[in-house]
Design a protein around this nucleic acid. Structure first.
Lengths: 345, 345
DNA sequence: CTGAAAGCGCTTACAG
DNA sequence: CTGAAAGCGCTTACAG
């Protein structure tokens, strides 16, 4: 770094032959400047390739126009997660549109470190993505910094959070499968600690119950998975393949696409026909669901809406607005694909 | 924001009953402080939940320990892109380990805006991901800021860039398919402007040529796709299905997994058997390639290595190291999956 | 070991 | 319309 990297306002002003104050005014656009002066300053800006320091500006304005996004997740994929990736894409675009930029951190152990980091960076606000422990929320609350949660669970009614209406989605999934004529269900459910997995399962079972179908009556079999990955779905299905066949379940529901796809792959490898032998349904409408064969019937999640609104709601919090809704729910819809198509007859 | 958000060093020092200098020393760990004083300061830190302002610190130290990552891409998915997402995950982790944080921007029109933004933020360095136009590179160069390119193309030998050895990968793909006994090839090639697509195609064709197989001899048919998405692969295969069947091609190679998967889906929907009727091979080793049925034979890309090294090489540039390699290439390997398995006999 | 002072690069009243 | 001055919250020589 032997060469000059950045010029300061002082140097800029000197070159233009004006005071720092004046230079500052024409650059920021706040305040008056005669056409002549403005012209000279602008020329100097060009000549020096002057870039005003956002750092210095933040220092005095007490605003950084940066938003911290922390994704809490045990393991990879984080950004490349099929759902979170989409949400982050939307957050990036929405932030851009509103004049914010994004500091992105991933945090695997739900530590307070990443939060501290964001605090030190003096971000204007915080978007917390995914499940996070109560102590993290409690910690953030103490700092009086605008923040909100995306796709996380909390009993705390004060916390602004955006979630899918997973329970209703689960119900709709059940309705669809029942409408297709299924009466015996095999379920692979993701980690119960995750709000979305547990609610989807709850909604699904609830709806079945109203059709007179339940675990206790023997028409429904639930398998709990400690993970929500393709691999675990695959492995569970391998493990329980016999059970599955013997139980004569005609439909498989998983609380997310990954688990469903893993199970489906295991079944296809064993020569089962889908949807001929068994109908399969996932949840999330990940891009993959449309790429596989047969394509996967699933329930949509409004990643676009969630990402967009996360930024705009946070912006409202940052601007000190009072009546920001604490809970925003997004409706989910069944997307019927090949994996649950009835056989033609 | 009616409540106190952040305390300053001055307030901290007052509470501890020391000078700002002293407080600063115990917090930063640079310089001496008696146990007694240190104790008092630390207690004050706890009491106030004092978070030193990274903004003020950056102001004086002229270092932000922030790295700007700009992903240049026309359209979504950007972060959720199957390959870039993985690279970004690795960049995030590697940055964390080296004490850097990430400013993430996506730029759809390859404008200079996002670069200007990063410059104003005074990031320590820049990671430019994906194809970008020459004018962007030329612009960045003027600012004497450490930067490097990931997965982009450039004729400029000065530019530090990290790429896959796509040509060798293409050759290996050809070898594998020939070894499987194929002699008539159908190729779906992604956008020629992209370095990786064009090199993969080049390597593939080159290798075939040495086997005496070529476009001019009629054993190879190349389809150019203007996009690199699943949708375009799917659509092209629908469109050229007749051509494909009539040409009796026994193998399909695509310059990335997405195109391959799109084409495969179209074929499966038409009832073709894979690999029975046709073998299919992609490139990138996206997560999807293992999830589909049949699983897709592909060529690996070392996303982990690229992401990790991008950060460490940039760190070396930031620290003023001279002999940073301009070009780092990553080897790719064929991953044999079901889609090219020979029939048992 | 500790403190007063200068300075990083801006913005913002306040005079003129 | 323009400039001098103070100040944002730190760090870093420099005295003591």
């Amino acid at each position: 770094m032997n060469q000059k990297l950045n010029y300061s306002l002082r140097e800029l002003a000197e070159l233009a032959g004006v005071s720092k104050s004046t230079a500052s005014r024409v650059i920021s656009g706040n305040g008056y400047a005669s056409p002549d002066v403005r012209e000279r300053v602008l020329q100097a800006v060009d000549q020096l390739r002057y870039k005003p320091s956002a750092v210095a500006r933040a220092m005095v304005s007490k605003r950084t126009y940066n938003i911290g996004v922390i994704v809490f997740r045990d393991r990879l994929p984080i950004v490349s997660h099929t759902l979170y990736g989409r949400i982050i894409d939307e957050i990036l675009m929405a932030a851009e549109a509103l004049g914010y930029s994004i500091f992105l951190k991933t945090d695997r152990e739900m530590s307070l470190r990443s939060t501290d980091y964001m605090l030190e960076q003096r971000v204007d606000g915080l978007i917390l993505v995914s499940r996070l422990q109560k102590n993290v929320i409690d910690y953030v609350k103490k700092f009086n910094i605008p923040y909100l949660m995306v796709n996380g669970s909390t009993e705390d009614p004060e916390v602004v959070h955006l979630v899918s209406n997973d329970e209703a989605g689960g119900e709709r999934a059940a309705e669809h499968l029942v409408a297709c004529g299924h009466r015996r269900f095999f379920i692979i459910a993701g980690p119960g600690e995750h709000r979305s997995h547990s609610l989807r399962l709850k909604g699904f079972c609830q709806r079945l119950q109203r059709f007179g179908l339940s675990v206790s009556e023997g028409q429904v079999r639930i398998l709990q998975s400690s993970e929500s990955s393709f691999e675990s779905g695959h492995q569970l299905m391998e493990e329980y393949y016999q059970t599955f066949r013997e139980g004569q379940y005609s439909a498989l529901f998983s609380t997310n696409d990954m688990l469903a796809l893993g199970a489906m792959k295991a079944m296809l490898d064993r020569g089962m026909r889908i949807p001929g032998d068994v109908a399969i349904m996932g949840y999330d409408n990940t891009d993959l669901s449309i790429m596989v064969h047969p394509s996967l019937t699933t329930v949509s999640v409004d990643a676009t809406g969630i990402g967009r609104d996360a930024v705009s709601l946070l912006d409202r919090l940052i601007r000190g607005e009072e009546n920001v809704p604490r809970l925003t729910e997004y409706e989910s819809h069944v997307l019927i694909r090949q994996s649950t198509k009835r056989k033609e007859e």
